[in-house]
Computed example of a mutant assay.
Amino acid sequence: MTTWTQRLAELGLRLPEVARPVASYAPAVRSGDHVHTAGQLPFVEGALAATGKLGAEVTVEEGQRLARVCVLNALAAVDGVVGLDAVSGVVKVVGFVASAPGFTAQPTVLNGASELLGEVFGSAGTHARSAVGVAELPLGAPVEVELVAEVSTHS
């Protein structure tokens, strides 16, 4: 059976280092059989991959790519707590999209995150989701994603 770590490699992806918190919080916390991540920004090697708002400086396609980066950072946070291969499924994703006035394609932007979870976890990546438009995000990030993963009770 292929592990989630092997599946990432098959997709040509690797987990980044766990993003350092930008304030006073933990990147992820286990509670029973769930790991809850903090909101993850699109950090690549310690720097934001982009800044700006969807519908102004950032396109929907770029937002989808950034949402994928956020999910990889969230999975790295999960990996740091229990190991990625302990994940039995993704339960919930919440995405925040910095939105210019009138921008309403938040769900389309967050599809980047959801689709990546499906690519990695297959049916175990099917999750409930909220896509929320906001005026601003920390550090001027365009997208922020958090998730809840169910994990093996033996991890």
Rank of each mutant, 00 (worst) to 15 (best):
E57H: 13
T3R: 11
V81A: 02
L72D: 00
R7Q: 11
L41N: 03
D79W: 08
G140D: 00
V145Q: 06
V97F: 04
A98H: 02
V82N: 04
H127K: 14
F103I: 13
R7T: 04
A74N: 10
F121P: 02
A77L: 05
K53D: 01
D85M: 05
V134A: 11
E119D: 14
T5M: 06
L8I: 10
L15I: 04
A86G: 05
T2M: 15
S114E: 04
F96E: 15
W4N: 08
V143L: 00
G39S: 12
V91N: 12
T59N: 09
H36V: 08
V71D: 01
A86C: 11
Q106N: 12
A141D: 00
V87W: 03
P27G: 05
V58I: 08
S155F: 11
A50D: 07
F43K: 08
G39H: 13
Q6M: 12
E57G: 13
L15R: 06
V29Y: 09
G63C: 06
A76V: 04
L139K: 11
A38D: 06
L116I: 01
V134F: 05
P42T: 02
A113I: 01
G80P: 04
A19E: 05
S130Q: 15
V97R: 09
A50W: 02
Q6R: 14
P101K: 14
L75G: 03
G63E: 00
S152M: 09
A124L: 12
E146F: 10
C70I: 01
T104N: 14
T51Q: 00
V29H: 09
P138E: 03
A131R: 12
T104F: 14
N73S: 06
E17H: 10
A86S: 12
A98S: 07
F43A: 00
R14G: 09
N73R: 13
F96V: 14
A149T: 06
L11T: 07
S24Y: 15
V69P: 02
A98P: 00
V18H: 02
S99N: 10
V120R: 07
V148H: 09
V90D: 01
G80I: 03
G46K: 12
Q6Y: 11
D33E: 13
E115S: 15
V35F: 02
G12S: 06
A128Q: 15
V145H: 05
G122Y: 10
G133L: 07
V81D: 01
V69G: 04
V151N: 10
E136N: 15
E150W: 13
E57I: 12
T2S: 14
R20L: 08
G52F: 00
R129W: 10
A38V: 03
S24D: 15
L11N: 10
R65N: 02
A56L: 14
L147V: 06
Q106C: 12
D33P: 12
V81C: 01
V87D: 06
H34Q: 13
A49D: 01
T3Y: 07
S130P: 15
E17D: 07
